[in-house]
């Protein structure tokens, strides 16, 4: 009954725990009574290279590979991987993307000297396909809980919302597969991710005034026309348009000082001041 067969693609880069996450998904599905098949690619693609895992489940599954435009969910641990695999998601499916590690190594010439090439990120890809999109900051959430390595559980928490099996199967799978001693933190991470899935707006509230981070982001609201270019191009998702349609700062800590927002603001309304300026002042 291939009609009832569903698919999930997990994609990330080496070191992010993609394979473990795949095993957890498979285990949860089995616990929920599904027939499952899984395939994965790794090896050459460890540590910085691309790693993916396909999982299919349903009453009876023939092939382990998820065909294009059929996946229920794409869980991308990294932005470039989201784009690489988005074609596999069916119309109306879900994309869960971790924001923390989305800047691929090739995107910047030299961040310190602000010579960053705009990498061509296109969130419209997701909107075009009418996908349920959840952009999450799994690493930060995991860090706050005490261990950044639990980030993949945060992602799974969000993914779970779109898979149609009871959360108890997920939690049982996590408990049995994560390293000994990290069960609690991984379960907490899963639940945190599960909450994000239900949220509509970005989790953080944009601040119109800005706040101190490594780089100072200044928005001149009297010039800003809230055109949304800056927030779309920021590789670190520091900026966002709030529910009133006004631009605000979501996360100034993440700013790498790449200045894309500043250079691509048609209204000269953003300026990014480097941390160097502060250091000089302090030392002086």
């Amino acid at each position: 009954m291939t009609d009832e067969t569903k698919g999930l693609v997990l994609a990330g880069v080496g070191g992010q725990g993609v394979i473990l996450a795949g095993m957890i998904v498979a285990d949860a599905m089995v616990r929920a009574g599904h027939d499952i098949k899984q395939s994965e690619v790794h090896g050459m693609a460890q540590r910085g290279g691309s790693v993916f895992s396909h999982i299919r489940w349903g009453p009876g599954v023939d092939s382990p590979l998820v065909p294009r435009a059929s996946a229920e969910v794409l869980a991308a641990f990294e932005w470039a991987e989201a784009i690489r695999w988005v074609d596999y998601v069916r119309e109306g499916g879900a994309v869960v993307v971790d924001l923390r590690t989305i800047v691929p190594p090739g995107a910047c010439d030299d961040r310190r000297n602000w010579t960053t090439a705009y990498p061509g990120i296109d969130p419209e890809l997701f909107l075009d396909r009418q996908l349920k999109t959840r952009l999450i900051d799994a690493s930060s959430t995991a860090s706050e809980l005490g261990n950044i390595r639990a980030a993949n559980s945060v992602i799974l928490g969000t993914v779970a919302a779109f898979c149609g099996i009871d959360d108890s199967h997920w939690e049982a799978a996590i408990e049995s597969l994560v390293p000994r001693g990290t069960e609690e933190i991984n379960l907490a991470a899963f639940r945190a991710g599960r909450e994000v899935a239900d949220a509509q707006a970005p989790a953080a509230t944009p601040s119109p005034e800005g706040f101190a981070g490594p780089h100072q982001i200044d928005i001149n609201h009297s010039w800003c026309k809230d055109c949304d270019i800056c927030s779309r191009v920021c590789p670190e998702y520091c900026l966002a348009i709030d529910n009133n349609g006004k631009l605000g700062i979501v996360d100034s800590d993440a700013c790498t000082g790449c200045r894309l927002c500043e250079l691509l603001c048609p209204d000269f309304a953003i300026s990014i001041r480097p941390p160097m300026a502060e250091a000089v002042t302090t030392n002086g």
Partner: peptide, 15 residues
């Protein structure tokens, strides 16, 4: 602020 519409990239070119 200049007269150009929100999202018009001409301002980027000036910059």
């Amino acid at each position: 602020p200049h007269v150009l519409c929100p999202g018009c990239a001409h301002g980027i070119v000036l910059r």
